[in-house]
Write a protein that binds this DNA or RNA. Structure first.
Lengths: 229, 229
DNA sequence: TCGATTGAGTCAAACGTTTGTTTTAATTCA
DNA sequence: TGAATTAAAACAAACGTTTGACTCAATCGA
């Protein structure tokens, strides 16, 4: 392909990132070979060293690339929620939270990012590398923070209250388990794959659970934790 | 060590399994080398081929070993719960479910198996190998099944009802997220590691959530799923 | 305007190392 | 003695990385 060099450079870098995202999303760092990446990217083996300094550099760049893509698709939404939360009623905040989580779930189950993101994110949780900092700052912290504001407003607590943080974590957990534990869930349901009907059933139940948890009797935990076990 | 051969054989096999469990629990299959395993097990390289036929055989044996250990620690408990559920009141079933989940959480956060089990289990979920069958049959299915009975009894539904399965999955999810997403949670809490106080706070909140979810308005989903989206 | 130079990017080939596995010899115990 | 284990060495294959030649547009001095 007789393309200009400036164009080719950008394209090769991006092709490498895209191929690496697909590879690292499905397999572990050590399970992915550089040759496999460059083959999928239709690039030369030395392009990795040239553009990223090596395999580790490519991995870090790939995580940053993923975080950026996820953040880009979420930043506007999160910012809207944040602003809306300041003037919205508690009930509207709860509704906003439900919608976000269910939308997020659908993305992770059927969306394009859901194919690669969960693998990388959850692998970085169990054995954090330098890439975890990127994920946390760009993705996890903003998401948790925004949801915490919604919960805090609904419950009349501070967003930094430990009870709020725990609740947000639990809410995310019971959502993401349908992606993380997808294989087990599908077995239990006797379905080979997620379809629209399954997803809708899960979403309907989850919405009930969200509201049930949000409405548990308040139980603030400030900086101090009660002494009684 | 001048030990008898029959003894040494068994011990070598077991030392390999133990070393492999620690290795595979913390790192991916490809991230673990056979030399690293035999070094930790103080065994010879050829012992892997001799006892397990190769690295893959060792991995499968390790997963079975893990599943057995987890199952052994849980089988009695699950059987008791199952029998108790037949005669117990719905309220007692709910209490039984809470206790099991919280006990399981504590095991995963502070217990010995919690160091290695989650890594293997959740890796097998995202990229199931032959080892997933072992895990599912020996561990995941019995656990889900028993919890489903508890939920079913509490809610007056069938244990095979899809609504029950979804609920059990969600309950497990909001529990295990504190192990899976431990790194993120600890960051959010501003704590370097899980201690007794943190764990107690989480358990107290989770118990509320469990009951709140269990008490959501019944919404049976039998084989058919409602047509209205 | 033009030939020479530059520098980023790509390429095939080869680098040394590590991988899982196998082979061969020595050792152990019944 | 003979079967069972271990130990050490060697194996081919795959790994991440490096090398040096090459392309080609952009730049520069005359």
């Amino acid at each position: 392909m007789p393309v200009s060099n400036t164009h080719a450079r950008i394209e090769t870098r991006d092709r490498l990132l895209e191929a690496a995202l697909q590879a690292f999303g499905n397999r572990d760092y050590d399970g992915v070979s550089t040759r496999e990446i460059v083959e999928k990217a239709e690039a030369n083996i030395s392009a990795i060293s040239y553009h990223f300094g090596g395999k580790k550099g490519l991995y870090l760049a790939t995580v940053a690339y993923l975080a950026d893509r996820l953040h880009a698709g979420m930043a506007e939404q999160l910012e809207q929620i944040r602003q809306h939360a300041e003037v919205a009623s508690p009930h509207q905040c709860a509704e906003s939270l439900c919608r976000f989580l269910l939308h997020f779930l659908e993305n992770m189950l059927l969306g394009e990012v859901g194919k690669h993101a969960p693998g990388i994110i959850f692998r970085e949780q169990s054995q954090p590398t330098d890439a975890f900092e990127i994920l946390y700052d760009k993705l996890l912290a903003p998401m948790h923070g925004t949801l915490a504001r919604l919960v805090a407003r609904y419950r009349g607590l501070q967003a930094t209250d430990q009870a709020v943080i725990i609740m947000v974590h639990a809410l995310i957990g019971q959502t993401m388990i349908f992606r993380i534990g997808r294989t087990t869930f599908l077995r239990r349901m006797g379905t080979p794959a997620f379809d629209a009907a399954n997803l809708e059933a899960v979403k309907r139940q989850l919405r009930h659970y969200y509201m049930a948890i949000l409405n548990t009797t308040p139980d603030s935990i400030n900086t101090d934790i009660p002494h009684d076990a």
